[in-house]
């Protein structure tokens, strides 16, 4: 656990030293703020004290934001060769990947925490449902966790960060849209399966205010699979 935290700290320091974190957080706040408060079906139009418009916007912004954040995680270590330094220290592959995962999750957490003024503003206008708001944020964190897993996996299979970004986006696209399209165009068990695979099904269910084990399992397994395959990719160096 200590080793994981040392890696997380180093990772966070390099996110903030290299300004990547600042740029991405400002972009995230800018985009989600603009679409939440100023443009389109914004928060005033629906005439309810509800953060749902923000959650829906964040659901999309994070979809692009996370691959951009996670793309450097492993690929940079691979291309610079520093992975050799790390893994010849008393660090296991799992510790390395978990350290990276945690650092990414913390950056997302900070980004989401910085939207607290939205909550405070709305709570001052009317009666904000605290439970639903909290669950909305939980849903966003769960979803982020899953996409970080995918992003780190994409980053572990290539030395090129742009390629990692595109692969993460490509895999993410299936969970974000394509499975839901399949589910809508099919019927019976197949449709149900695709509907279960679709991320918005689970996200909407949580942000509507219901925390179901089924949804938690979905996000947890996606995260785990992403990290598991990352570790698997790393350990391929031992194979022939």
């Amino acid at each position: 656990m200590k080793t994981i935290w040392i890696i997380t700290k180093k990772e966070l320091a390099s996110y903030f030293d290299s300004l990547i974190a600042y740029v991405l957080i400002v972009l995230f706040l800018g985009f989600s703020g603009f679409f939440t408060w100023l443009y389109g079906t914004d928060i005033f139009l629906i005439g309810q004290v509800d953060l749902r418009p923000f959650f829906n916007v964040a659901y999309w912004t994070l979809f692009f934001f996370i691959p951009a954040l996670a793309m450097r995680s492993v690929s940079e270590e691979k291309s610079s060769g520093t992975i050799e330094l790390l893994l010849t220290k008393p660090v296991t592959d799992w510790q390395l990947i978990l350290g990276k995962y945690l650092a990414n999750l913390i950056v997302i957490f900070i980004a989401l925490a910085l939207t607290a003024p939205y909550v405070i503003t709305l709570a001052n206008i009317g009666n904000l449902d605290a439970g639903a708001t909290l669950l909305g944020y939980t849903g966003l964190l769960f979803m982020s966790s899953a996409y970080i897993g995918i992003g780190i996996y994409a980053s572990s299979i290539t030395k090129n960060q742009i390629v990692a970004f595109l692969i993460a986006l490509f895999i993410g696209l299936f969970f974000h849209i394509i499975f839901s399209v399949f589910a809508n165009n099919m019927s019976g068990g197949v449709a149900e399966m695709f509907s279960y695979l679709d991320m918005s099904t689970h996200f909407n269910s949580i942000s509507r205010g219901v925390l179901d084990t089924k949804d938690v399992i979905y996000f947890a397994s996606l995260t785990f699979l992403g990290l598991f395959f990352s570790v698997l990719t790393l350990s391929k160096r031992n194979l022939n």
């Binding site: 040392i6 180093k10 390099s14 610079s80 520093t82 790390l86 010849t88 220290k89 008393p90 660090v91």
Partner: peptide, 27 residues
């Protein structure tokens, strides 16, 4: 103690922070 070929390092880290990071990993 290992010095790999081509000496990979974290270029954006100050020397002292880097040594601290490595030292912490080695406890």
């Amino acid at each position: 103690g290992y010095l790999p070929e081509s000496n990979p390092l974290y270029n954006d880290m100050p020397v002292i922070d880097y040594l601290k990071f490595v030292g912490e990993l080695l406890d």
